[in-house]
């Protein structure tokens, strides 16, 4: 599993991961490996802990008071929840796109340049290049190239979400976490984001939480199904290639959920 120089062939690897909010256990004993340059979907009914799990992958959970984790998440051979790990450093490498588009109330340019700037890039010309490249990657360049000075909030919902994706790309992460990125968008915008995700996986590892099973089926290569178990703690029920999960799931609960018997 681990090659000689200490790195793993997986992009991320969770081992016996438990996540707590104060004394409440939100996620119980998750072990899973995320394949690089693939899209992995986390599905399950609401409250099953899939967002919590996703947020633990770049330690966004730290921002919730009283949250802590047991177990390990390995990233390039290092435990993200290790003692000496800087969450700020983690988040730069493992970026995140949120449920509701949340552009900063700044211009499109400043939105994207924000990340590189806080990392110390002050050169105007290079910033310009980063902005253009990120916008192109997020398939937003043609829409906005003439008014980069416009406020990010003036864009449509789908454009805002692509702006947020571009913003994430600008800090050159390796993994992108997406927390129901399309739930606030209309179907056409959703399709465009999905298309974008497929393009991005050439270069990035993507983990997406979605409550929309069709979406998981359409875009993901791997799917993890989670369910609320004992004491309302989320548990990983089944994790496999998407095709398998949707055609021949091992667990009957997965099948029930997929076929719409509950959830």
């Amino acid at each position: 599993m681990t090659n000689p120089n200490g790195t793993s062939k997986y992009a991320l690897e969770a081992r016996n991961l438990h996540i707590f909010y104060s004394s409440f256990r939100a996620v119980r004993n998750v072990t899973m490996q995320i394949e690089p340059n693939k899209i992995t979907a986390l599905i399950g009914p609401s409250g099953c802990g899939k967002s919590t799990l996703l947020r633990s992958f770049n330690r966004m959970n730290d921002l919730v008071l009283g949250s802590h984790a047991e177990g390990e998440i390995l990233y390039r051979g290092q435990n993200l929840y290790g003692n000496n790990v800087d969450p700020v450093e983690v988040r730069r490498r493992i970026g995140m796109v949120f449920q509701k588009p949340n552009p900063f109330p700044k211009s499109i340019f400043d939105n994207i340049a924000y990340g590189p700037r806080i990392l110390g890039q002050r050169n105007k010309k290079i910033l310009g290049e980063i902005v253009e490249r990120s916008l192109r990657q997020a398939a937003l360049w043609d829409d906005v190239k003439d008014n980069l000075k416009k406020s990010g909030l003036a864009l449509s919902g789908g454009q805002q979400q692509r702006l947020c994706i571009a913003r994430t790309l600008a800090v050159e992460p390796e993994i992108i976490l997406m927390d129901e990125p399309c739930s606030a968008l209309d179907p056409i915008a959703t399709l465009r984001i999905e298309e974008l995700m497929r393009e991005l996986k050439e270069n990035y590892t993507i983990i997406i939480v979605t409550h929309n099973m069709q979406q998981a089926a359409r875009v993901s290569d791997y799917t993890a199904f989670m369910l609320m178990g004992n004491e309302r703690a989320g548990e990983l029920i089944e994790y496999d290639q998407t095709e398998r999960i949707f055609t021949k799931p091992n667990d009957s609960r997965t099948e029930d959920y997929i076929t719409g018997r509950f959830g």
Partner: peptide
């Protein structure tokens, strides 16, 4: 993939990092 270079801004994505690149997640002061 690993040796793909960023030639210009309009040539899309940035290269993925080589899988065995050493990274440092250590807490910084």
């Amino acid at each position: 993939m690993a040796n793909q270079q960023v030639v210009a801004a309009d040539q899309a994505p940035v290269a993925a990092r080589p899988a065995d690149e050493q990274i440092n997640l250590k807490k910084r002061i």
